[in-house]
């Protein structure tokens, strides 16, 4: 298509000016812009949008799962009274694998999505800073929400503000415990015992009997009540005979 030459006649010029003034009046009275005027406005996101990660230290069992699963290598375990995770937001890609893999629900998402840091150093958030939401300075005066239907999409501006003090979106976790699915394939290597952070798997020596007769020496492995279901042993087992099972 060829671009037509703009007419420079006074009438055309005048018409264009009128158009602009008309649009300006329209926008001043009933605006229909779609841009979110952040930070004066804040967009409302769906509940499940992944946000700032918070930690409940009382639930954390120091199993290191989050640190091991993190594809961005953004989680650093640091020693306090025990090991707790800290998130480096220079690396975090907000996949929340850490939250999903946490066996006890110690890690959770929050609905804080816009974080600002003053320096790169500050972006390395420590475990102690993850137990509550950071201080929020709110400048927003109204919230914005998009509605998309098959035909068109609309923007709705509301005067009321969204509450971002809702701390944690608590994942639903059922307590689980390690369980040996095929004891007949146990190598007796005790790697499960070695890796267990809670000494929940114990071993005793015993005699092995077959039909009432002693056929040799062996050991008994026990998964005790101490098991918190972190699943580290499941991953360690070279024969892959351990699994996590839900307990009532």
């Amino acid at each position: 298509m060829k671009v037509e030459k703009i007419s420079r006649s006074p009438i055309a010029e005048l018409k264009r000016h009128v158009d602009v003034i008309q649009e300006a009046f329209k926008q001043a009275l009933i605006p229909d812009r779609v841009t979110v005027e952040y930070p004066r406005e804040r967009r409302i996101y769906p509940d499940n949008l992944r946000g700032f990660i918070v930690l409940d230290r009382s639930k954390c069992i120091s199993c290191f799962r989050c640190a091991q699963i993190c594809p961005a290598n953004a989680i650093q375990m640091s020693l306090y009274d025990n090991f707790y995770p800290g998130v480096d937001y220079t690396k975090c890609i907000f996949c929340h694998f850490c939250v999903d893999s946490c066996p006890t629900g110690a890690l959770a998402s929050s609905n804080l999505h816009d974080m600002a840091f003053r320096s790169l150093e500050e972006m390395k958030v420590k475990a102690t800073q993850m137990t509550r939401l950071p201080t929020i300075v709110r400048e927003d005066k109204q919230s914005v929400e998009y509605f998309v239907t098959k035909k068109d999409w609309k923007l709705q501006r509301k005067k009321e503000l969204e509450d971002i003090s809702v701390l944690r979106i608590i994942p639903r976790i059922k307590p689980r415990r390690a369980f040996c699915e095929e004891p007949e394939s146990c190598l007796g290597c005790r790697q499960c015992m070695e890796v267990c952070p809670h000494d929940a798997i114990v071993m005793e020596r015993c005699e092995i009997t077959l039909g009432g007769e002693v056929i040799g020496k062996g050991c008994i492995l026990k998964v005790t009540e101490k098991c918190v279901g972190c699943g580290l042993c499941v991953r360690q087992c070279p024969m892959q005979i351990l699994a996590l099972k839900e307990v009532e």
Binding site: F179, C180, P183, C186, L187, G188, C206, I208, I215, G216, K217, G218, C219, I220, L221, K222, V223, T224, E225
Partner: peptide
């Protein structure tokens, strides 16, 4: 609580 046995060969 679950427990299971394994045999240790004679050394």
């Amino acid at each position: 609580m679950q427990e299971w046995q394994f045999v240790m060969p004679e050394k």
